[in-house]
Amino acid sequence: MRSPSVELTARSQRLVIFSLIAIGLGFLIVVQLRSQAAVARTLAAQDDTSVALLINDLNRANNQLIQQNAVLAEQQTQLQKALTSGGADSQALSKELTTLREVNGAIAVHGPGLEIRIQGPVMDFELQDALNNLRNAGAEAISLNGYRIIGSTPVVSRGDILMVAGHAVRTPLVMLVIGDAEQLGPAADLSASSLQTRVQVSIQRQDDLAITEVVTPRPVIYAQLGK
């Protein structure tokens, strides 16, 4: 049996110890919460995602430009070789002409890609978004319900009717896209994910698609060559 004075001293010591621990705990909890908020603010200010995505896009674009340089250098070598030997290589010109006709939608083409079926009405901005995503993924030729779509093809909604190059296109919409299916797939999935809340979308990879429709170039009336 301890004396009352000893009991009082022990109780005081316990109180001091618990008070110190409580202060320490309180301090640490506050610092903990504040430092977590600071981490969040710092990350938001840095916007690492934006910078990382930009780096990724720049790397991809630079690789494309390196390939473009290689193709042009080869073309120049071929032309120069013929000229040096006193001849003229019209094959090099024909090859470039074919590439540009493909790009401008002026000739029928075939190749691997995707067949996208959309069962339900789509607005002009939804189709524009899809086309934009597919072009960004390297789409080389696109058609929709038998109409070839190129960069300058207007897509507009007139009420509930979707108009492509002035022609009404009705559901089901069948889009053929030629390009690298590995790259096109995620772009098509992205567009489908926003459409699938109200319409049915199916995407199928194809080893060989044919796009036979061509675009007649619009006459140039106002624009003139040169800066």
Binding site: Q67, Q68, T98, E102, V109, G111, E140
Partner: peptide, 15 residues
């Protein structure tokens, strides 16, 4: 201005 690059077509082949 003119486009400051060119076009690569790798997958589409003329019919």
């Amino acid at each position: 201005p003119a486009y400051d690059a060119t076009f690569l077509v790798k997958y589409a082949q003329p019919i």
